[in-house]
Design a binder for these strands. Sequence first.
DNA 1: GGTATATTGATACAGTATATCATGTCAAAC
DNA 2: GTTTGACATGATATACTGTATCAATATACC
Lengths: 166, 166
Amino acid sequence: MHPTVAEPTAPFPASTHDHASCRDWILRRAESLCAEKKVRFTPQRREVLEILAASHRALGAYDILEHMHRVERRPPPAAVYRALEFLLALGVIHRMAGRNAYFACTRPEHGRGEIQFWICRRCGVVGETESVVIAGEVPRLAATLGFQVGAVNMEIEGECQACRGC
Amino acid sequence: MHPTVAEPTAPFPASTHDHASCRDWILRRAESLCAEKKVRFTPQRREVLEILAASHRALGAYDILEHMHRVERRPPPAAVYRALEFLLALGVIHRMAGRNAYFACTRPEHGRGEIQFWICRRCGVVGETESVVIAGEVPRLAATLGFQVGAVNMEIEGECQACRGC
DNA sequence: GGTATATTGATACAGTATATCATGTCAAAC
DNA sequence: GTTTGACATGATATACTGTATCAATATACC
Ligand SMILES: [Zn+2]
Ligand SMILES: [Zn+2]
Ligand SMILES: [Zn+2]
Ligand SMILES: [Zn+2]
């Protein structure tokens, strides 16, 4: 189904990891999912994903736009937002509401399930976890509130191991 | 220290609750905290808090602005943002990043600690919980990542009990 | 090829938030 | 009681984030 490549990164990407294969995995998964869903992975959509996959940082839509240097003319903002919307729906990127920023998902299991986003306030690197404890706790809390859970968003800002070393 | 009023609302405000006393509690806590910290609870700051405390809904900054009907002239956006910044720092309101909206905190224990925000996508009512399970899980996950936790933001969108009944 | 559908281009605009500098208010110090 | 300094607000402009609309183009399917 999905390309049989080793899991691309640890939950929090180490500075030493092999990012070339990490990046490839992200793009191949997108290709694979598009084929599965019979939707088109156009050059523009690919370019936006490539820009995000180039790092493990969260970028704003206009940051992405600046990286899209067409020779003739830069595409309008809506082009980026359309690509982002497509990639979000495909499940290969995530949005950090707290920063109005987007980043490429690097976790094979992230189709569904509750995710925690970890972002370093110094270097901007993003990590992802899927705590089973939290995944169990949310429905339990919801039950006591009589609340029907739709979407869950959890973002933890702080300092990553690499930056704490400095 | 804080006014000795009964806890204002349940984690998720019932439609039947006594909102007059709930609202009073929010404003008195703000007064009390301002006295403690020796900062000024000016009319403008009070007005913004009153607007938020009027409901358990999350309002955008410009929604708040519309409610500030001065006779002469409406204050500029920055006035609202300045008041919101002040109230956030005081700890009497919260910001929902996922909606660019703000709401009055109704939980006595919310000085520090990890909070879950629950927002109904139909009626917009906001609830708050403080799960000890999640409060314990976050540092545990952080330790495995070598991550130093700063701020945590957790938002759950769905449907509240009242709206599910409809 | 011809038609329906999806995608992109182009333009405008809405919504959210901040920067900057001037003016006003308050309270303590003199 | 006036000076003084810190804090708060007013006024204006602008930056940042995201969407609406409609025309043009590309792709898929018959
Ligand atoms: Zn990588
Ligand atoms: Zn870092
Ligand atoms: Zn209430
Ligand atoms: Zn509701």
